[in-house]
Design a binder for these strands. Structure first.
Lengths: 237, 237
DNA sequence: TGTCTCCAATAACTCAGACATAATTAGCCT
DNA sequence: AGGCTAATTATGTCTGAGTTATTGGAGACA
């Protein structure tokens, strides 16, 4: 069910799409800007027009640009961007993301994950629970300072989303869940483990194990709120 | 701030991407399937390899396929698809979408929109409120049987999301909001206006106008729950 | 018999150059 | 001044050749 083959080797079109994508979400290139013509741009980059065009198609598919004959390829306004697209999210965190954006992302998590935890408490299978238990063990074994520990953290949250039994909701997991990982790395950068998040995770786990929907919602809300305050980001006025 | 230029004329690569995308999300082609080679496929479709390849790049950007030299282009497993991508959502509703999927979508709305309504009640500007008022008037004027009325309905929900002041949350609006429109059309198909949804909308509007966050959350929840029961879709067991 | 290394086949990838098409712009006419 | 028309131009499409990354199997070896 899960195709876990090694990712394809990086190709030119993907590389260029990534490069341009980072420049766009990073604000180097701004909405309304018109990119250089295909011939000029491809020569500038030392690649063929074909490869450059395919890169543009990728960006257009994600809503970052729109191109039309004669007018050229222009960067669309931000509200047209698919901010939840995994690639776009990853590109956003390649640069220095706007602190407000991170706050917004956490706010989104505070909306989604408690609800997902409640659903998970109601619908989880024993296998789902076993996956959560295993992930929790991984977090305990390595801690969040370790890369493997962070991976286990992500697995824990993904397992909850999966147990919620709602496909579109789970699709958010790959994006928001990825953001979790980036923000955690972000956090480590400025301070060493401000507080032990493991007890919070255990409480969520217990509630889901007991099929206590309200408890799961509440404990998950607590977990996220504390995680956010630990980030020491600007509060919303 | 909003680039509302006429959409570019349909091009071959977009058309083919759409066609293949519909076949994939519609289940005609299944995960794990390998598409025909570029030469064969492009000849079959009567187009050039270039156009076909660009179509594949679009699908790959949305996570539907993955291609590698020698191995070919294969359809990825569903959990890799960006189900929230506006195009994918639209393609899904081109065919007969799985009823369970629609239920999941409504469930997602019931998670997101009440929270958004609560934020909107706290953060709305007078201009935001004016937009909602205007949209509500549009709904009253035309009713949901009319295309313009449905457009006003969408505007109402979008205005709330926008007033919530959370960009990623708003990004969901273009997808979930679009789904609203499709499901409404879906509903009209089987029965003529089961119940007047306007009073529900007015109550949400009043709560947001009064900056009553809890009230906004509650009334929005009611609105969505009733809208779902009106769909007469299979309940989750 | 099973495992490993190497090699050849293959399909996607990249390139180059030409022609077609659709927006835009300027210019013309009314 | 306004609206139609045609030239301009950047993207779109096509063809055909050459390159590169996987793969699957042949052959060597334990």
């Amino acid at each position: 069910m899960d195709d876990d083959r090694p990712p394809p080797a990086p190709r030119i079109h993907g590389t260029i799409a990534r490069k341009l994508g980072i420049e766009i979400v990073g604000g180097i290139r701004r909405p309304g800007d018109i990119l250089d013509g295909e011939i000029e741009a491809s020569e500038e980059l030392g690649i063929s027009r074909t490869a450059y065009r395919e890169a543009i198609r990728i960006l257009a598919a994600k809503g970052l640009v729109e191109s039309r004959p004669k007018a050229g390829t222009r960067i669309t306004s931000r509200n047209r961007w698919n901010l939840l697209d995994p690639d776009i999210l990853a590109w956003t965190f390649e640069g220095e993301p706007d602190p407000q954006f991170i706050v917004d992302l956490f706010e989104l998590r505070e909306v989604i994950e408690p609800a997902a935890a409640a659903f998970a408490a109601q619908r989880r299978s024993d296998q789902d629970l076993a996956e959560m238990t295993d992930a929790l063990k991984g977090m305990e074994a390595f801690g969040l300072a370790d890369e493997r520990g962070r991976a286990a953290d992500q697995r824990f949250h993904r397992a909850i989303l999966a147990a919620a039994g709602n496909e579109p909701l789970t699709a958010l997991a790959s994006t928001v869940g990825a953001a979790v990982s980036w923000t955690t790395k972000f956090k480590q950068r400025r301070r060493n483990l401000p507080r032990d998040p493991l007890p919070d995770h255990r409480r969520v786990h217990e509630a889901i194990a007991a099929k206590d929907a309200d408890g799961a919602r509440r404990t998950m809300t607590d977990l996220l709120r504390l995680a956010l305050t630990d980030m020491e980001l600007p509060e919303r006025e």
